[in-house]
Amino acid sequence: MKFNYNLEIDNILNKIYKRKIFDLACENNISNIDSKNIEPYKNQFKSFEVYLGSEIEEFIKDSLPKEKEGYFFRCDVSKHKNNYYPKIYDNLGNKLASGSDSKFATILWEAHINNLIIKDVYESFNKEKFHEFIDNNLENIYEDINKNIIDFYNTNKLTIAFSNKSELVSVIKDMLLKNELDISFAQDFVDLDKVREEMIMYSTPLDMYNEYDKLEDELSYCLDKFFKYNNDELFNVLVNDNDFKFVENIGLVR
C-alpha cells in the first residue's frame, strides 16, 4: 500500500480532536450525553475556543508507531520529505548486522522526523476541521466521553457522591467520620460557637481543652448535635463557598 502522508497527519489529528473533546467535557462538566438529543452537545463543544498547547507534542509522539513499525514509518516520512534516513533493516524487515549510522545519529534522526510531523500537525489543526470531526463523530464516541468523565472525577477530583440532594447532609457526615473529608470541613459545617457554649455550661477549662479539641475527639456527637445546615443550605455552601460543581449522575466534584 502506498504511503499517504496527508492521511497519516489526518489520523493523528483525529486522535487529537477526540482528546480535545474529552478535555473539554472534563473542564466544563459535560456528562451524561444523550444520543437521542445530541445536536445541543455538538453545538456546545463547537462553542469553545480550542488550541494546541505544548502538551500535545508528547501526545503526538506517543501516538506514533513504535519499534520496527516506527522505524519504517519514519523512513516513509523521510522519503516523503526527501530527507536522509539510516539503514537499520533490510527490505524484508530483517535487522542489519551493522547499521549505517550510530545509535546516537539514529536517535537524532528520529527526533528530527518527530519534529517535522509535529510541525505539520500543528499547521494542519484548525477550528473548521475540529468542528467537522465533532459533527461526524460525536455519535460514535459519546459513550466513551460519559465513561471518561466518571473515571476522571473518580480518580482526579474530590467527589461527594450522592443520587439525591436529600442525602447530602448524611453523606457529608459519613465521609467525615470515615476520614474521607478533611476535618476542616467539619470545622466549617459544625456550629463551633454552640459547641463552646455547651463546654462553658459544663465548666470545661477552655484554656486547656477548646471546641476544636472536642470536635476532633467527639466528631460524631458534634456532627449530630451542632451541624449548621440542612441539605439545600449545605449544597449552596459547597458550590458557592467551596468551589464544588454539580455533575449529573456523579454528585459534587472539585
Rank of each mutant, 00 (worst) to 15 (best):
Asn83His: 10
Asn94Val: 03
Leu52Lys: 03
Lys81Asn: 12
Lys18Glu: 15
Ala97Leu: 09
Lys79Phe: 13
Asp62Cys: 02
Gly93Lys: 13
Ile60Val: 14
Pro40His: 08
Phe45Thr: 03
Ser31Asp: 14
Val77Cys: 14
Pro65Val: 10
Asp23Val: 11
Asp76Ile: 00
Glu39Ala: 11
Phe72Met: 11
Tyr89Phe: 15
Lys68Tyr: 03
Ile38Met: 13
Pro65Gly: 07
Asn91Leu: 14
Asn43Ala: 13
Asn32Arg: 04
Tyr89Ser: 06
Lys95Ile: 14
Lys61Pro: 02
Glu57Val: 08
Ser47Glu: 12
Pro65Leu: 07
Leu96Ile: 04
Asp76His: 05
Val77Lys: 12
Asn94Thr: 12
Ile88Arg: 15
Lys61Thr: 02
Tyr84Asp: 11
Asp34Tyr: 04
Lys61Ile: 12
His80Pro: 00
Gln44Glu: 14
Lys36His: 10
Glu49Phe: 08
Phe45Cys: 13
Asp34Glu: 07
Lys61Asp: 09
Arg19Gln: 14
Phe48Asn: 07
Lys42Glu: 13
Lys87Val: 09
Tyr89Gly: 03
Ala25Leu: 11
Phe59Leu: 11
Leu92Arg: 10
Ala97Glu: 15
Asp23Lys: 12
Ala97Met: 11
Pro40Lys: 14
Tyr85Leu: 03
Ser78Asn: 01
Pro40Gly: 07
Ile56Gly: 00
His80Leu: 00
Ser47Met: 04
Lys61Asn: 00
Leu64Glu: 10
Lys68Cys: 02
Leu92Gly: 03
Leu96Arg: 10
Tyr41Phe: 15
Ser35Gly: 07
Phe73Thr: 05
Gly70Gln: 11
Ser54Phe: 05
Arg19Trp: 09
Tyr85Asn: 11
Pro86Ile: 09
Ser47Gly: 08
Glu67Ser: 09
Ile33Trp: 03
Lys61Trp: 08
Tyr41Ser: 13
Glu55Cys: 02
Pro86Ala: 13
Val77Met: 07
Asn29Glu: 13
Asn83Ser: 04
Gly93Trp: 08
Cys75His: 08
Ala97Lys: 10
Cys75Tyr: 03
Lys87Gly: 01
Leu92Glu: 13
Pro40Met: 12
Pro86Ser: 09
Ala97Ile: 01
Asn43Met: 08
Ala97Thr: 10
Pro65Trp: 13
Phe73Gln: 05
Tyr51Val: 04
